[in-house]
């Protein structure tokens, strides 16, 4: 799977701030999409690239908060870093409560923002990766026969093949065959690997 280059979306109505942020993001070799308003953001949003959104909390017409609400409604899980203006803490708190990634009070330091942007991107990348592996695992799991899925459940709770055979009333050898088959299908070599894979995919 080729790595998709992350992108940082910036929405701020102050053009000077916007310009400096573009420069800052460029300096660390990240792509940026800078917008002066929420409407502009929607026009330029690219859903399939990992990244984050740096969003000014206070803007005319559609505010940062309102944009966030729309993102939630559209089930777009892009991490949002709010830039809050003066004493907008109550708004920022609300934003955090609604799932914002972080917020920075203006005036902020460039380095602080960069740190947060990097965190956000890695989080988003991880999220996307998890989503992908989850999808992959789900596909493999679909290939398992019902008997294999049954035996996998027993394995995951830590039972030995002998115990499984006893419980299900089948031969030890049959259990072993099923077990080997399902491990092959899922591409894991041990029950430990199986457990880890499922946990990482958020299925366990």
């Amino acid at each position: 799977m080729t790595e998709v280059k992350p992108v940082v979306f910036v929405v701020d109505d102050d053009p000077d701030v916007l310009k400096s942020l573009r420069l800052l993001i460029k300096s660390v070799h990240l792509d940026s999409v800078c917008c002066g308003s929420a409407e502009e953001f929607w026009a330029n949003y690219i859903p399939d690239r990992p990244g984050c959104l740096v969003l000014d909390i206070r803007m005319p017409s559609v505010s940062g908060i309102e944009l966030q609400q729309e993102l939630i409604e559209r089930k777009i899980e892009i991490p949002v870093i709010f830039l809050s203006g003066h004493a907008d803490v109550p708004l920022a708190v609300q934003a955090m409560r609604d799932g914002a990634f972080d917020f920075l009070e203006k005036p902020f330091q460039g380095s602080d923002l960069l740190d947060r942007i990097r965190n956000a991107i890695s989080t988003d990348t991880q999220r996307r990766k998890n989503l992908a592996s989850k999808r992959f695992i789900m596909e493999r799991l679909r290939d398992l026969s019902p008997r294999q899925r049954q035996i996998m459940q027993e394995v995951l709770v830590g039972k030995t093949s002998r115990q499984i055979a006893e419980d299900l009333g089948i031969s030890h050898k049959t259990v072993e065959v099923h077990r080997t088959r399902l491990m092959e299908k899922l591409g894991v070599k041990s029950s430990v690997q199986l457990t880890r894979m499922l946990v990482e995919a958020g299925l366990q």
Binding site: S20, L24, K106, S111
Partner: peptide, 13 residues
């Protein structure tokens, strides 16, 4: 805070 933010961002850049 707006220009200061911009200054800081620019210098960091």
């Amino acid at each position: 805070s707006q220009p200061l933010s911009a200054i800081s961002a620019t210098i960091t850049a």
